[in-house]
């Protein structure tokens, strides 16, 4: 009671604010909750099963598999599940206290190609699944993870290059980074999807997903490079001098001394870049791919399920929000314990 008095009702201005916000919250939240929960339709299989006037979650439930797997053949979807489990294990290894960073890294580096082979089916004797069938959350995750995996080595080289003592290397890396950071992702995706085929020999074609991935990783690489450069700048001069005194060359100094420290410094920044990229992958729908948002957006035009935009967007928002919010908590968590963090 005294808490409420102090934090909500001290002075007339404060009381007025509380009452006003309370009023708006009730005005907005009560109808929303009623729509989304209390008078929503959960059971059924058709549009006509939604007749209470609330949200039609039947549609989301009916379409759930498609939202997750896109047009990936039903019989082969276990491969996506296995890939997802592999990825989860790989990521969890990084945050288990007993596992060293090196082991987790090796596992991740193995899991990525294995996952890719599993999904495409090439070389394992599994039926091949063309990438144009990939879609939904699966495509979103593939774009994020593969985009990052390709961007990371590029980013490290760019970050080192931007701090290089050779003017040619430094200037070209800086220009490259600033070029991608200065333009919108859409133009990069347009470029990858329209311009790239023009550069290749006649007859050679690059898969649409691969083209998008090239665009995404160039873009993400430039942002990651800046994050990593921040970490490099935080390493005191003494570390370079100590490595030089031990007779280590440039690359050995970087790989064994500088980068491990620098990367650990910027884990929160890296996670934030991951969040940004995860949200940005939605842009591929503009070049005609069906990622998680893309497939929901496409399904809204389904003649059988018309007029359910709000349901589709609320569901999509909830999923994106949970993942991004979860990742941002992780970032804060890492930041808070970074003082005692040992990789």
């Amino acid at each position: 009671m005294s808490w409420a008095r102090q934090n909500l009702f001290s002075g007339w201005g404060n009381t007025l604010t509380t009452v006003l916000i309370g009023f708006v919250l009730v005005w907005a939240l009560v109808p929303f909750l009623d729509w989304a929960v209390f008078s929503a339709d959960w059971v059924g299989s058709k549009r006509v099963d939604c007749n209470t006037g609330g949200a039609c979650w039947v549609y989301v439930i009916q379409r759930f598999d498609q939202f997750m797997y896109g047009f990936y053949p039903e019989a082969e979807r276990w491969r996506v599940d296995v890939g997802a489990v592999l990825l989860m294990i790989a990521l969890m290894l990084f945050f288990l206290p007993r596992v060293t960073g090196r082991l987790a890294l090796v596992f991740l580096l193995l899991a990525l190609p294995v996952g890719w082979i599993l999904l495409t089916g090439q070389g394992l004797g599994l039926p091949a699944v063309e990438t144009r069938l990939w879609g939904g959350m699966m495509l979103t995750v593939v774009l994020t993870v593969a985009g990052l995996a390709l961007a990371f080595p590029v980013a490290i080289l760019l970050a080192l290059g931007r701090r290089s003592s050779l003017p040619v290397v430094r200037i070209s890396c800086t220009a490259f980074i600033e070029l991608w950071r200065g333009v919108p992702l859409i133009t990069v995706l347009f470029m990858a999807s329209v311009m790239l085929p023009l550069f290749l020999p006649d007859g050679a074609s690059v898969d649409k997903l691969l083209r998008a991935l090239i665009g995404v990783s160039l873009f993400a690489g430039a942002y990651l490079a800046e994050v990593i450069r921040g970490g490099l700048q935080a390493i005191p001069r003494g570390q370079y001098e100590a490595a030089a005194a031990l007779g280590l060359g440039y690359w050995k100094t970087m790989i064994y001394v500088i980068l491990p420290q620098a990367l650990r410094h910027v884990i929160p920044g890296l996670i934030n870049t991951v969040i940004a990229l995860f949200k940005d992958t939605t842009l591929v729908l503009i070049i005609g791919m069906f990622d998680f948002l893309g497939i929901i957006q496409a399904s809204l035009n389904d003649q059988e399920w018309l007029g359910l935009a709000a349901e589709g967007y609320v569901f999509a928002a909830l999923v994106y929000w949970s993942i991004c919010f979860g990742l941002s908590r992780l970032s804060i968590n890492v930041e808070q314990r970074s003082g005692v963090y040992r990789g």
Binding site: I275, K279, D280, T282, L283, L285, L293, Q297, L300, A309, A310, Y313, A316, A317, Y320, W321, C324, F325, S328
Partner: peptide, 14 residues
């Protein structure tokens, strides 16, 4: 924590 494109769609279509 929600993609901007989704928010644009929400405001526009919904």
């Amino acid at each position: 924590n929600i993609p901007l494109l989704l928010q644009i769609f929400f405001w526009y279509f919904a």
